[in-house]
Simulated scan of single mutants.
Amino acid sequence: MNLKINDDLASQLRLLNEWIIASRGVIVSSHVNPDGDNIGSQLALGEYLSSIGKKYLILDEDPLPRHYAFLPNSNQVNRYSDTAIVPKEYDLLIVVDSGDLERIGTVVKVIHPEMKVVNLDHHLSNTRFGQLNIVVEGASSIGEMLYYFFSVNGIGITANIASDLYLSIVSDTGFFRYDSTGTGTHLIAADLIERGIMPNYFHTHVNMMKTLGFIKVLGRSLTRLELYEENSIAFSSIFYGDFQEFPDVDTEGMIEHIGTLDTVSVFCLIKEKREKEYRASLRSKYDIDVAKIAGEFGGGGHKRAAGCQSGSLPLEEFKTKLIDSIKREMRLL
């Protein structure tokens, strides 16, 4: 399949492979609160590193979400707090799907003066924190970018890599529903399907394998729904007590249910996983740029999907400031 890729990006992807081959050891990491794009892209890189006999480690702050354990190589994801590591044995860190270096959490502790950092991302708010920054803001996912990486460098896509790339792509495109889904995205997916990927298998494992805790916490979030601006803004919350009662609950995808209300344009889910520490996930159906709003609170993301944290703000003040920012952006349209 002949997909168009510009010369600058092709050169960067070749340079990345040169750095990988020349390195003595590679750590692959990504943002806290992992999602499918994060997990799939790390595992795809891990498969390649393993195939060339490179010493490598996939290292994240948070554990692998249980609904991604169906991937054949999912046991390669290591949690930083559970892993004994000698940082000097690794001289290359590849950070995928993270707008800034702080988003990888405690894994930043592995960085030492001799280590090169590669920043492989597609977020508008990326801070270009690496020695090599491969940032493609129009890419649907890191999986799409890695497909180009494998193609440009003549690297074969094995069955495991195909699975990892497909998970990455469907996760960050909402199974091909989001604006970032382009012709190239569908062509890549078609090629992966030709290689044996079964779309329904992924839909079932990603979307249809929720725990009882997920259903109960989702129910609570829906009963807490608050509406503003003639029902065009929706807010809900999941509190620390919910996570204490259901400690293994994965809230990924929960926010989408809030946005199904026909009058809603912008919707937000605030989560308190640690006591009095609040993270907000923001979504936009239409033209409101939620990445801009998240940026006001030190966060970031994409135009229609972003996130931020409360910092030192108490919950009600955090929520009030978010609502005020959303209202302001709405008035500018």
Rank of each mutant, 00 (worst) to 15 (best):
G174W: 10
G174R: 09
D179Q: 12
D179T: 11
D179H: 11
D179M: 12
S180G: 15
S180K: 15
G182I: 10
G182L: 13
T183D: 05
T183A: 11
G184H: 12
H186T: 00
H186W: 02
L187T: 00
I188R: 04
I188C: 10
A189H: 11
L192M: 00
G196D: 03
M198S: 15
P199G: 03
N200K: 15
N200C: 14
Y201R: 14
F202L: 12
V206A: 07
V206S: 05
N207A: 11
N207T: 11
M209P: 00
M209T: 10
T211W: 04
G213M: 06
G213Q: 04
F214D: 04
I215L: 15
K216P: 13
V217W: 03
L218T: 05
R220Q: 04
R220C: 03
L222M: 10
E226T: 08
Y228C: 10
E230I: 07
I233C: 08
A234S: 06
A234Y: 01
S237V: 14
I238R: 00
F239H: 08
Y240D: 01
G241C: 07
G241H: 08
D242R: 05
E245C: 12
F246E: 13
F246Y: 14
P247F: 09
D248C: 06
V249M: 06
T251Y: 06
H257F: 15
H257G: 04
H257E: 02
G259K: 05
G259I: 03
L261E: 01
L261A: 09
L261P: 02
D262A: 15
V266Q: 02
L269D: 01
L269E: 01
K271A: 03
K271I: 00
K271M: 06
E272W: 08
K273R: 13
E275N: 13
K276H: 12
Y278E: 07
A280R: 07
S281Q: 09
S281P: 11
L282M: 04
R283E: 05
Y286I: 06
